[in-house]
């Protein structure tokens, strides 16, 4: 059902048809140039209908309970009358194989709620792809009327920075007792966090979780906040027991209010647009390079020459780049 008419998608998304929304995302995610071209046209038309949603990024170390948190947090928002879209990037590609996308098994209630839309996406191992695809998907969901967009990312690799560069608020989930508290998480992740929540603050774990909160608060003191308006708070919550969830949402709203007041909100979004453009340019150049027939032909031999020392890396790079000119 891949129609070639962009208007069919534009109308469908604006009419909030789930089927069309999902199909549009498929176009965005497609590796075929024709699909991407079509998607670009659609997004361009939908752009005026975007921008109003709260854009939230959520990450966490493996085992922090991200999916369970999103289930509880999402249901909390739904009960408050919001409509929620969750975009989850799954890294579980097997060697040579596809992905197993099991996120929704942990979002049992949210996944069946009419006002929620969850789309797990296989990552196919291309980080640049995540940027483009997730951004565009986020915009399409906004155009389809969702007023809270949650982008879930895995707690490893560079995808956090990528996601942080496209959302208004970036939440990092932690748990107490996950080994050496600060070793387990990169300093870089704390630098882009707008708040940190210690999940699983329940049962036998409460004391440990409160201690962990103190430790992270100390850690934040040593970091220079990105904005003078906002020092990232550390919170306790339990997705399982539904405690502390409301506090996190209030934190998001407060951040929003303050950033609106100072004008930082607009500055940030504008900067994100420019960043987006640059990341598209970089990705486009890279793609152009790899798709160049001469590059394709010569690359293996040149790489081998560099490997065995018969060609200098500088000369090799110069030669390969000359093909694209």
């Amino acid at each position: 059902m891949i129609s070639k008419d962009p208007n069919c998608y534009i109308k469908g998304v604006l009419d909030r048809s789930r089927r069309i929304l999902a199909k549009t995302i498929t176009l965005i995610e497609s590796s075929l140039p024709a699909h991407q071209e079509l998607a670009r046209g659609i997004i361009n038309q939908l752009l005026p209908h975007t921008g109003k949603a709260v854009r939230l990024g959520i990450t966490g170390v493996p085992g922090a309970g991200k999916s369970t948190f999103i289930e509880s947090f999402g249901m909390f928002l739904i009960e408050k009358g919001h409509s929620v879209a969750v975009l989850a990037v799954d890294p579980s590609s097997t060697r040579g194989g596809g992905s197993i996308l099991a996120d929704k098994t942990r979002m049992e209630k949210l996944s069946v709620t009419p006002n929620a839309f969850i789309r797990p996406s296989p990552s196919e191992g291309t980080l640049g792809g995540v940027t483009r695809k997730t951004r565009e998907t986020m915009l399409v969901c906004e155009a389809a009327g969702f007023d809270v967009i949650i982008v879930e990312t895995v707690g490893v690799g560079q995808s956090e920075t990528t996601v942080a560069s496209m959302v208004d608020f970036f939440l990092v989930l932690m748990i107490a007792g996950a080994g050496d508290e600060l070793q387990g998480i990169k300093k870089g992740v704390l630098e882009i966090a707008d708040a940190l929540a210690i999940n699983k603050t329940d049962g036998d774990n409460i004391q440990k979780a409160r201690m962990a909160r103190k430790e992270y608060e100390t850690a934040f003191h040593f970091l220079r906040p990105a904005s003078l308006t906002w020092s990232p708070p550390v919170l306790n919550c339990s997705a399982l027991k539904m405690t502390g969830i409301d506090e996190i949402w209030e934190t998001v709203l407060e951040h929003r209010k303050k950033f609106f007041a100072t004008g930082e909100f607009n500055t940030k979004r504008k900067k994100q647009s420019v960043d987006w453009m640059w990341s598209l340019i970089k990705e486009g150049l890279k793609e152009k390079f790899y798709k160049n027939p001469e590059v394709k032909k010569e690359l293996p031999a040149i790489m081998e020459d560099v490997r065995n020392g018969s060609l200098a890396p500088t000369a090799a790079a110069g030669r390969l780049l000359s093909f694209v000119n």
Partner: peptide, 21 residues
């Protein structure tokens, strides 16, 4: 690419998931 649904779905719920994904 394999999506797994939660256990104990109703047909309506399974269809929703199939469409969204």
């Amino acid at each position: 690419d394999v999506d797994i649904s939660p256990m104990f779905q109703t047909p309506e719920e399974a269809a929703k998931m199939a469409v969204e994904n």
